[in-house]
Amino acid sequence: MFFWGTLLLILNSALAQSPSEVLIKKGTYVPFFRDLNESDQELGPLVVDKYPVTNKDFLAFVKKNPSWKKSQVKALFANNRYLEHWKDDLSVSADIRDLPITNVSWFAARAYCRSKGKRLLKTSEWEYVSDAQNKQNLDLILNWYGKTGTKLKPVSEAVENIYGIVGMHGLIWEWVDDFGSAILSNDSRKSNESSKSLYCGSGSLKAKDPSQYATFMRFAHRSSLRADSVGRTLGFRCAKDLITDKGDL
């Protein structure tokens, strides 16, 4: 009994030392869809969650914020599939505890991040820290996009990238703060130019590199969402800006 207790303590402290956040220094994001005269985007420094938010994390949030319970959530903030995989308001079975949270809307994701003093990543930040344009990640990305079905795995089993962030690819789709502007709006009141990017390959005229069809799929997925949408493979992680007067970060 004593032996196991000590072992547990040692293990716990070991885990507490591994950071759950990753520092991202200042960088430049080259936009995938570039408008005429649109320049590259500066970003950072910021601190990004190492792992996506899990069911366990979200349960703790719901307990403290009962308006986000499945039975309580306002229809405006999430559609009726919200948390469909939880048996009831506060029940998260052991087998899904460490899986990334899914079936949460953009409103819910934002509320969670805000409760931690954080926010969702912007598209430019997400694409940058995901290292998506690195050809070495292409197979990982495409294999997941090509695989149908909704089987998830624990966040600890996902792949860590060069920035030290885990599960950016091959695990889930992730909410970004500005998902609606991923590709231009298809609102027909605007000039017809705007909707062409979305459909029938004309998007490829604006994209940096049409062979990056994996990125196309990600942008297409984002622009299919509404703020109250949920998805069986759609989750999120949080980030916060690091405001510093040190020029070196």
Partner: peptide, 23 residues
């Protein structure tokens, strides 16, 4: 279907309209 990974749409060549219905 909710198990789909991807968003989808449809362009029917019989449709006279934006994207053949894709939009």
């Amino acid at each position: 279907h909710p198990n789909s990974k991807m968003p989808h749409n449809i362009d029917l060549h019989a449709v006279t309209g934006q994207g053949g219905g894709a939009e």
